[in-house]
């Protein structure tokens, strides 16, 4: 579909604005860095945003939908916005961007491993040590597990591989 120049410009502004929308639990990480933004469409001044849920039962889905809609509607020239969650591709933890992985680590959450390796723990996001243990594969949210660093003697969380 041929897009007009104004539409392309608006698309850029929508993409830019979406970078302001962060994960409600990890306020340094944007939805884009989490790999949740599937598709943005602009038609005239109508915007449609398609997002991937990280977990099917993630209770933050409605909150995120509202945050996205609110931010997009702040853009001048946007008349209305439709935010939908889709699963035409399954979100995987590999979709977290390189920058996103770095920010997770800075926030104190180990980035997800690259394969299903439930018996090994990632290195400690606080001190970098590799002498770590799996405490529990189930953590405070569906997407996180709990580990323990034997070097700095701190429990820490890590994103699960899904």
């Amino acid at each position: 579909m041929a897009e007009s120049r104004t539409e392309t410009k608006l698309l850029d502004r929508v993409r830019e604005a979406l970078r302001d929308v962060k994960d409600p639990e990890i306020p340094t990480l944007s939805l884009e860095e989490l790999g949740m933004v599937r598709k943005i469409d602009v038609e005239g001044n109508h915007v449609s945003v398609r997002l991937l849920p990280t977990f099917v039962g993630c209770p933050a889905v409605e909150l995120i939908r509202g945050m996205v809609a609110k931010r997009i509607l702040e853009i001048e020239d946007v008349q209305d916005v439709e935010v939908t969650f889709v699963m035409d591709v399954a979100w995987t933890s590999d979709m977290i961007t390189h920058g996103g992985r770095r920010k997770l680590s800075e926030f104190g959450i180990a980035p997800p491993p690259r394969q299903f390796s439930p018996k090994s723990a990632p290195s400690c996001p606080y001190c970098g040590a590799e002498d770590t243990n799996v405490v529990s594969l189930f953590g405070p949210t569906a997407c996180r597990a709990v580990y323990y660093c034997k070097s700095c003697q701190q429990p820490f969380e890590g994103m699960k591989f899904v």
């Binding site: 977990f55 099917v56 039962g57 993630c58 209770p59 189930f138 953590g139 569906a142």
Partner: peptide, 10 residues
């Protein structure tokens, strides 16, 4: 609790 949340989400 985490499993319950997943299952109820499904």
């Amino acid at each position: 609790s985490s499993i319950a949340q997943d299952e109820i989400g499904h």
